[in-house]
Design a protein around this nucleic acid. Structure first.
Lengths: 206, 206
DNA sequence: AAAAATTAATTAAACGTTTGTTTAATTCAA
DNA sequence: TTGAATTAAACAAACGTTTAATTAATTTTT
């Protein structure tokens, strides 16, 4: 792995757990095992490093749900199940990046970057919204508020995994419980969301 | 208003919008119109100011739902409606404190404070969880996952209001749309949540 | 009630660190 | 031999906090 990537992954880790302002370039350099000057040398500045990081990571998230929308062999409710599971898996696998994004979004700073982040997140959300709309149009779903239904799906996952301590207390677990490594929790969350979304969307006279 | 309170409300505002590490004591002093030294004088340190702030604000949130649990004249579903509306109103009225809390919770720092914050939030959540359990016990609700059902309620509200820009894009609104001052959005959110929770909790053969 | 003494509040300035970044010299690779 | 990569050192600026001096308020003494 070249030094540029070492810096990026060190920054990812530290920004994720200590926040942008809470992480110094010397922290990042030490974590990456490089000289602090290399950060300015490669990225220009700490802030541009953050921008590079978001750009770099965003590439992995491009249009994950796009092909799902046009799939003709799956029913809308089955598509939504896939959306839910993919989203859960993504956050379970790398919660740090997700924490970084939501923290940046909630700060009144770096507006240009916030806009870029919002665009990244929305790219997938709008695909999922279209799936719900498909179900409504075909008469399989009730005429729900598509935007807020998506909000509920994402919000449930995000809120549960926004902090380990909160998750533990919420679920009444001990200190030995690690939310992000619990396969049981993944399934429990997936199960809850799918059931709730079904009850919410499916017509009563089914 | 005495200077101690001026400092507290200035800190509340700035920590809320710029974050703890992103706000300097000089920023706070300027916003409050006091000398920077007054912060050390009254609170000891910047970190203790944050602790005082959480303690100060937490007093207003003490056991808001406690009396609701024991209320005999309301049905569980009606109680939940009240929980939803109170929670929505609280965040709409003062989103900054809520942002501060969730940001602090997601950082791997100040663990003692995180624990205190989690306890504050959980106090009300456990009351609401008991309401759902009442409904299950009385046979009015399905046997759902009470913890994750609460997570969905709180997560929906939190996610929608976690950032203005994300909210606008999610709802496809223009720049003139101010989520926190939109009475329409409050009602739309309340309506969506109540409907979804009803579909999720109420027995099919009702 | 007035004066004196004591405590509290407030200030500007300075403290030592840490911050992000740059420089200038050096090592490395092509 | 040229250009890129890497380094240690230095930079000014900003940071949280402390100091020492001054003003304001309160209490005690006369």
């Amino acid at each position: 792995m070249d030094k540029k990537e070492l810096i990026l992954s060190a920054a990812m880790k530290l920004f994720g757990i200590k926040g942008f302002e809470g992480t110094s370039v010397r922290d990042i350099a030490a974590e990456a095992g490089v000289n602090p000057a290399m950060i300015s040398y490669y990225f220009g500045s700490k802030e541009k490093l953050l921008e590079s990081l978001v750009e770099y990571k965003a590439a992995y998230m491009k249009g994950v749900f796009a092909e799902l929308v046009d799939n003709k062999s799956l029913k809308p409710i089955e598509k939504l199940d896939i959306v839910i599971d993919r989203y859960i898996n993504r956050i379970f696998e790398g919660p740090q990046f997700h924490h970084l994004l939501s923290r940046e979004l909630s700060l009144e700073r770096r507006y240009q970057m916030k806009d870029a982040i919002a665009e990244i997140l929305l790219r997938n959300i709008s695909s999922a919204k279209r799936i719900i709309q498909q179900g409504i149009d075909s008469g399989e779903f009730r005429e729900v508020d598509t935007e807020l239904t998506m909000t509920s799906i994402l919000g449930t996952i995000t809120y549960l995994l926004s902090s380990e301590i909160m998750c533990r207390k919420m679920l009444q677990k001990g200190k030995e419980f690690n939310p992000y490594q619990s396969k049981k929790l993944r399934e429990r969350l997936s199960d809850h969301l799918k059931k709730m979304i079904r009850a919410h969307l499916e017509l009563k006279d089914n």
